[in-house]
Design a protein around this nucleic acid. Structure first.
Lengths: 170, 170
DNA sequence: GGGATTTGGTTGGGCGTCCTACTGTTGGAT
DNA sequence: ATCCAACAGTAGGACGCCCAACCAAATCCC
């Protein structure tokens, strides 16, 4: 039973709508709500596409990162920086990838604190198969043409920059 | 928090960059990555602002929904529809709100299956205080002017519509 | 009426993220 | 040379989301 209002404003969540009527920064609230919701949609789509391959998006990203690294291996802290993840999240992800024999943990030759993660041959194959699945569904991002996709990326990049997500100290 | 892990350089995640060099739909991947990351940033900002009030964004949204409902109460399934949440998530959220005496659970007068959630006076006050905190930080969304915020909302709404996010609300 | 189906809600489990706290290691400052 | 602050990684816990499975109630339908 969809309410068949042809168009204009149903697109915003009820909560945000009420905000618009009664509270202040409705536009911002609507944008935030939309980001939250779209992220959820994309996460769901992508994870569904990856599930048959035994991967989640987080683990897939980690595999991609390793595949495209020179040696097929990176220290865990570097992975955390690249993927913008908390150290404990990296530990968690690597744990699961290792349990699936997609990566290995090795000690660093000179710094005994650091652990180097190396992708296995099985990991490379898994990543390749998962890439097919994920590109087949366009990463779950649908409804936008190329121009709009670029536009969206630009806006979000601007937010990230304002939040100090990039130019942190080296 | 992002500041825990300084990112050395560039605008786009390393993984997305490499995609751009070597694989196909780089633009889409970049957009998806950005959405994921911005969501994370917003979630972090908002939750930080709400933490002193003992709330998370999910629970705050539930309170807002109840505050602006006619009776200050809604069935759980309706909350799930409005907030686009899985039934188990609603159970979880209401559990915690109830533990804080911000809402009550009551039986539905005619349908004994449904549980009606009602906000308490403490809940209304908590919501009000939290609203101040959250608007003070602009919901964590910074770096965009009003036009760009509207533009962003439009693009994301388009994605949600394409994903069928508005089709079933009954 | 009475069985089959649908619906509302909960439980248990998996996964991801963060936080705090802790062990080792490194390397600079005294 | 030694001490100490910073760093790398992990353990344990909280929270959120989802899925599968389940019970109870309502509804459909023969």
């Amino acid at each position: 039973m969809a309410s068949h209002h042809p168009l204009p404003f149903d697109p915003i969540d009820r909560a945000a709508q009420l905000w618009q009527e009664r509270i202040g920064p409705a536009a911002t609230m609507a944008a935030v709500t939309n980001i939250m919701r779209v992220q959820q949609i994309l996460q769901s789509s992508v994870d569904a596409a990856l599930r048959p391959h035994g991967l989640t998006f987080a683990r897939y990203e980690a595999l991609v990162l390793l595949v495209f690294s020179r040696q097929g291996s990176l220290p865990m802290n570097v992975m955390g920086q690249r993927l913008q993840l908390h150290p404990t999240s990296v530990t968690n992800i690597v744990d699961r990838l290792q349990a699936d024999h997609l990566v290995e943990r090795n000690g660093h030759p000179t710094d005994r604190r650091t652990t180097v993660v190396t992708i296995t041959e099985a990991g490379r194959q898994r990543q390749k198969a998962a890439t097919v699945a994920i590109t087949d569904i366009d990463f779950g991002l649908i409804g936008l043409d190329d121009t709009q996709t670029v536009q969206l990326t630009a806006l979000l990049t601007q937010v990230r920059r304002a939040a100090g997500d990039f130019n942190q100290s080296s």
